[in-house]
Design a protein around this nucleic acid. Structure first.
Lengths: 340, 340
DNA sequence: TTGAAAGCGCTAACAC
DNA sequence: GTGTTAGCGCTTTCAA
């Protein structure tokens, strides 16, 4: 059992309130010598005030929930670190919740956050219902990577990202551009595909639905999807993956099939995770403003928790940019020939 | 303000105690029709009991702290997921703490965990003092990747890992084997280097201290260390990196210097993170039993929290194994020649 | 089968 | 400048 405030009060021969005033440096002054006595008693007894009791009393937990699919994925791991960092700097503790892309588990975590009385939450949702549930629980929530009506949303400019990549690949001369997207009704993924489609259409390139694959946002799934694409009668000369993790899987598949990147097939990812610059070949990708997104999310949340009013609807669309590295180049001569 | 139990009691025209008995299914029975009335009131009012009050009353928070260097690093991200998973399955909530390898920040988090009255902690420490502080706070603690007297420790067999790698490289014909280790007094790193040293010594290969570099366990640091090694008058033909993340950085450096892996230089990592099998060339590494370690840590902690007695000292050393992939091979002919 | 009430450790309003 | 005390929302013992 930890030492309680009562013990400190007795030892310092003061009232319990005085102990509080010393511990909290207020809200009312304490005579220097009384304070010294109290501090000494605290020291001697090893007193550490209970945040549990404090939370109950103040009706504030200084806690936020963080729901992400899976911290083992470097992208989410980075987001987690950023949110935790800003939280830490502002006195908020973070409860970690991995949804594992499982709606049921996510729902259960929303419930937990409610009973824990967290003050706010940051979520990369698996399903929009979780956001609704969070709202129903009156938990101030920031949604990342997903646009949802009536919620504070921060997204990368996914549509523009999709356009950038596609136009870039078209300019290089590619015509058969595959797209591996994320399964589920995630709007971030949909937007990227939309950008891709619109640019192709505008360029008069026929859309081939076989070249659009949907799968989990993981490295093995990326590899598997690439294998499937290569079985196509006329395989793509470029592959645009939903994220860098999948793109790395794609490059692995190409290598296993004896294809060179970018000479035979170009690969472009999304997110610019730390690893993207170091893999071989280094990965052309869309720079995702995760740092800014994470920080802005955390700051916005903290502002809201401090009572600042931020009107809804709120959707911040953060700029993206193409980072050209080694994994992309012109299509092989044969393909260029065919096109002409 | 959330609905409280009192409101439910009034609405159902029962006492507050009865509401508790319904919510908790005990510890005493409630007449079926009373229960129904209570449940209906709960439903109508949208009552969700407060874990804050419950924690205060029961003197149990069902919370554990997780302190790791940085979840953006896939290895720690994986560990975080595993711990959180087992915690979730057993009714424990996880507070996420990134130490950022900063002793001060880590200390501050230990303090936070104490005031939050967490029941236990899992830590990959930056400094041994944190573990001492946790013990002083009477927080039941499991230490990963670090052997500390009087604590429950789970480590991979780092020494054996270091030996496996070194013997493997020697057998391939390498004699100039560099070792990039992690800065700090982390025993996991020291043990790996010890294994490396002992095998070299046993093989009669002179130890060159210039070939042992110490740096942060990050991708950029791995790359930088490799650049330094290449400036050596007689550069190594093989590089053993403290972990896979650093090894990927090493391979990037070699590529930038026009060296081929493994033809010119072999690279071996440690951990077998998911990405290791997908990078180019795929990475020879030591399989780290992180899944088993994470699970065993979480289960051990939960057993201890449930009052089960596990005697100290406790150090579980988990088996490792070498995974041979593409990044390693015989040294170039010139080097072989030189050796003979 | 149910109600009343003490108390978990703390904050802050009210008294002096 | 300091002490007293009423709760915060809950669990659980003691009574009825």
């Amino acid at each position: 059992m930890p030492v309680t405030r009562k013990a400190v009060a007795r030892r310092a021969a003061v009232s319990e309130a005085t102990v509080s005033y010393v511990v909290n440096n207020g809200p009312r002054p304490v005579a220097p010598e009384t304070r010294a006595r109290v501090l000494q008693a605290i020291e001697e007894l090893g007193y550490h005030p209970s945040d549990v009791a404090r939370s109950l009393r103040k009706q504030r937990t200084s806690t936020i929930g963080l729901i992400v699919p899976d911290t083992a994925n470097p992208f989410y791991g980075e987001i987690a670190r950023i949110i935790e960092n800003v939280g830490y700097a502002n006195g908020y503790t973070v409860i970690l919740c991995n949804s594992n892309l499982d709606a049921e588990r996510e729902a259960s975590y929303v419930n937990l956050l409610r009973t824990r009385r967290v003050e706010g939450a940051v979520i990369i949702p698996t399903t929009a219902e979780s956001v609704a549930a969070l709202r129903a629980a009156e938990i101030c929530t920031i949604v990342l990577e997903y646009e949802i009506e009536g919620a504070y949303c921060l997204v990368a400019d996914d549509y523009e990202g999709g356009r950038l990549v596609t136009r870039y690949l078209l300019d290089l001369g590619h015509r058969r551009i595959a797209c591996i997207t994320r399964a589920g009704d995630k709007t971030s993924s949909q937007k990227r595909v939309e950008g891709y489609r619109d640019v192709l259409r505008a360029a008069g390139v026929a859309l081939e639905t076989d070249l659009i694959l949907e799968t989990e946002p993981e490295i093995a799934a990326g590899e598997a999807a690439a294998f499937r694409l290569l079985e196509h009668a006329e395989p793509p000369t470029a592959i645009f993956a939903h994220n860098d993790t999948m793109a790395i899987g794609v490059m692995s598949a190409l290598r296993k099939r004896g294809l060179r990147v970018p000479e035979d097939v170009s690969v472009v990812g999304f997110d610019d995770i730390v690893q993207a610059a170091y893999v071989n070949p280094s990965l052309t990708t869309v720079a995702h403003p995760k740092q800014r997104m994470g920080e802005q999310a955390a700051y916005l949340l903290i502002d809201l928790l401090r009572g600042q009013h931020v009107p809804l609807p709120y959707t911040a669309v953060l700029d993206v940019s193409l980072i050209e590295r080694e994994s992309s180049g012109p299509p092989p001569a044969a393909a260029r020939h065919r096109k002409a």
